[in-house]
């Protein structure tokens, strides 16, 4: 399966499936603990002002992560 877009490319409330995390080990560990893992579905709820973080939802958990991290998370857009 080929994953072109990253989490940073998603428009708001667009459902996507996580493919691959290319972030460093420490951040990866935290993201995985928050539920951001391959094959899970993810959605961007909001982007912060002043190039602030992204608010995302995975399962019933909402959390924020930064743009530079979002650029390193490959996703596949789900059209449904």
């Amino acid at each position: 399966m080929k994953c072109m877009p990253t989490l940073a490319d998603l428009s708001l409330h667009q459902l996507a499936r996580i493919c691959n995390l290319r972030v460093n080990a420490e951040l990866g560990q935290r993201l995985v603990a928050l539920g951001l893992r391959p094959d899970r579905e993810i959605m961007v709820i909001r982007r912060g002002w002043f190039a602030g973080p992204l608010q995302v939802r995975v399962g019933a958990t909402e959390f924020m992560l930064r743009h530079d991290a979002a650029h390193l998370i490959d996703v596949e857009i789900l059209h449904s």
């Binding site: 560990q29 993201l31 928050l34 958990t61 909402e62 959390f63 924020m64 991290a69």
Partner: peptide, 10 residues
């Protein structure tokens, strides 16, 4: 800093 930043919004 190389602080990993991901924070829950309860």
């Amino acid at each position: 800093s190389r602080e990993p930043f991901a924070l829950e919004l309860p």
